[in-house]
Design a protein around this nucleic acid. Sequence first.
DNA 1: GGAATAGTGTCTGTCAGACAGTATCGC
DNA 2: GCGATACTGTCTGACAGACACTATTCC
Lengths: 252, 252
Amino acid sequence: MPYDPSAYPPFAVTVDLVVLTVRKHALCALVVRRGGPPFQGRWALPGGFVRGDEDLEAAAARELTEETGLRPHVSGGQNAGAHLEQLATYGAPRRDPRMRVVSVAHLVLAPDLPSPTPGGDARSARWAPVGSLSGTDSGAEWDGTEQQESLAFDHGEILRDGVERARSKIEYSSLATAFCPPEFTVGELRRVYEAVWGVALDPRNFHRKVTGTPGFLVPTGGTTTRQGGRPAQLFRAGGATLLNPPMLRPEV
Amino acid sequence: MPYDPSAYPPFAVTVDLVVLTVRKHALCALVVRRGGPPFQGRWALPGGFVRGDEDLEAAAARELTEETGLRPHVSGGQNAGAHLEQLATYGAPRRDPRMRVVSVAHLVLAPDLPSPTPGGDARSARWAPVGSLSGTDSGAEWDGTEQQESLAFDHGEILRDGVERARSKIEYSSLATAFCPPEFTVGELRRVYEAVWGVALDPRNFHRKVTGTPGFLVPTGGTTTRQGGRPAQLFRAGGATLLNPPMLRPEV
DNA sequence: GGAATAGTGTCTGTCAGACAGTATCGC
DNA sequence: GCGATACTGTCTGACAGACACTATTCC
């Protein structure tokens, strides 16, 4: 691989974020409105340039904190922040009309946030149900009250890939707890699965599965009635990161 | 995301390839000897710069053809070439001592090739058992007859990630057939799984599993005795790409 | 015949799906 | 009481693991 350092073609490198959460029984993604051209006024994924002496993951974490105030912890760990992992890299020659830009997309799974806290240099930000953005697919409860508009650049494709990664990853890992607050009930965790997959799960079988998997859930001793009905036990995420055997996703 | 195009930090973008095959009951990776500094004389993964008007995947396919003569088909399709998919992107600030280089690694699964056909600008190339490169891990039959030496740059880490991806992906997809010639027997496919996972599988249960999964294998009608013993049926890869339920990997 | 590989059949334990039934809250 | 949710228990069918056994080839 001998080469002349001055002869390589110039690239810009950005990070884009697919930030997912579950709000009101629906899987939602964070989108920001673009303040300048190209695609001015269109919705896009949050993101920005990687700095000259910055790791890719550090750039993603910095953008996440700027946009949401969330502090990720990158792998393992308890449920005090958001989960962040690299998703894929998008580098088609003309995906950005101004110059050659390679974007390293990252996936963030976050618990529901009280306020959409727009920040950074974005004019505005909101949580959009993924069904309203990708059109097809099991978004289901898309009610048409918000304008449906495709995302800027190739961000629609990036979002689809991120949603698909999240859907498959909660099958064989305990990552669904990243969508939950630090303490949660079995029913709340089940509604996360139902929102992400867009299906209904049997509450009894789900309860047996998650409480029977060692290391998945740790009871905190407390109870809550915030969902109504009989008081439910509260749990924290356990240390187990891989689910074996996996949670089975119906209708595949 | 307003920004000044002239203000972005300059990056070089490369593709690196983790090319895996199964030779003599061992999982092997293609490595090339570096002809120039840095890391002159050390083994490295094949790869090169992305051209100014070239897609990332096209760059990976071009490097693959230059190094091995293989023509990938990127997704789906029959078994006439190699499987190619994006793996992950590596961009630590000083991973290349000369400049800021972001490498988009790709994973290639190829059938056993008669000749290691070095090509391109690499001085020499060879198939190295992955156990001899990553040291630890279930490489098992590393016999010490070849020098054990860590790969240049962060290529050891990239190789580990690629091997891990391949190991997990053959669990729930029919991708193991990408390691096989166009026509193969159940026993040959089983030896692929055994080599990649580094375990022994029960031939009877394996046979029942793969022949009982619809769409996985298609009998061609022919038979062969190239492995000795009773003639075995020949199969082609079927159209099924996802295995449900997955092949279970022992000892997890 | 002996060794090697291919292929079939049977038993058993585990577990997911389906569903009955009970417990405890708010109204 | 009524509706909601939480939780326990039982039955059944699918399937993986662990064998025994037979078939066909080369030597």
